[in-house]
Design a protein around this nucleic acid. Sequence first.
DNA 1: TTGTATGCAAATAATTTGCACCAAA
DNA 2: TTTGGTGCAAATTATTTGCATACAA
Lengths: 175, 175
Amino acid sequence: MSLLKFVAVSESSPSLQPIDVSLTPQERFEEYLQTRGLRQTSQRKTLVDQVFSHHDHFDADELIDRLPRRGDKNYVSSATVYRTLREFVDAGLLKSFQLEGRTVYEHDYGYPQHDHLYCTRCRKLFEFQSEALTKLRDEVGSEHGFRIAGHRMIIHGVCRECSKSRRKKRKQDLV
Amino acid sequence: MSLLKFVAVSESSPSLQPIDVSLTPQERFEEYLQTRGLRQTSQRKTLVDQVFSHHDHFDADELIDRLPRRGDKNYVSSATVYRTLREFVDAGLLKSFQLEGRTVYEHDYGYPQHDHLYCTRCRKLFEFQSEALTKLRDEVGSEHGFRIAGHRMIIHGVCRECSKSRRKKRKQDLV
DNA sequence: TTGTATGCAAATAATTTGCACCAAA
DNA sequence: TTTGGTGCAAATTATTTGCATACAA
């Protein structure tokens, strides 16, 4: 079994380096299903393929928008989308978290641990890695006698691009 | 105007030290209402009093449970509870964040900036302060050209108490 | 065959909103 | 008086669930 790199293509800002993994997400999910006596269905295939076709953050609604419509080939009902997203999380393929009320999903399998910067203007999520943060988290945890399972850190603010366009807009407003 | 300490009583674990503030939350809210031409009503009074009667984390439902029932004196409809909680956040009295789907509120006015440890077993939130975390956040932000507005960090794990009782339970299970 | 998976529609759950009536200022 | 506030019930939104049917193993 060859070690292959699962390439997560990111159309927007360059994200973090993918991790070498021995299975594609598709293969990993098949493995997950088999070990639990669950079935491989066309719907699950459609969803794995769509979700791992590119690297970004999304919610259930956005995913449904990208899938074939009712009546079209490979249509998947939204009930199944919700059910399958939960399976992806259970299988360790995806992580989910809450942001402004909505449930956001992102790749976990084949992707390094990281945290987020959230631009409240354009609502984009940016990723960053910080060993210092993890270390700090571990220290805080042991100070409080916590057995740590993980953490979630989101920095809120306005991104570089939005700061620029805001400045531009202001100048224009004066004209 | 005397400088007074708004004492946030915590029944459970000792929390952080309250900050000296010149107005009580009640007074602060009155000020907020007046500067916007909004009115002081019995419902708003009931809610400020209840919310700041002790220091803890709560959601809308828990707050409603602690208030008088329909038909009783000082009853407040849940629509008004939701509307007022949003005002408290706008007024800077409360902060809110999402945790496992629910919207959690906590004191902000008269209370220092802090982050949370969340025990996934007993579902309690513990608070901690870390200057290093804020510093790290600022560094990450400026590296990415972010104008930072704030952050939210939650460490997930199992607290000391729950780790103990888990051990106990296991021993008992063997009897 | 046999039990899991799916689609559909109904059920939930947490909020929000429209509107007639109430009440601060 | 005048305009914002409240309660109630209906509307929303996101998600889950019951159930009859379809299909993978």
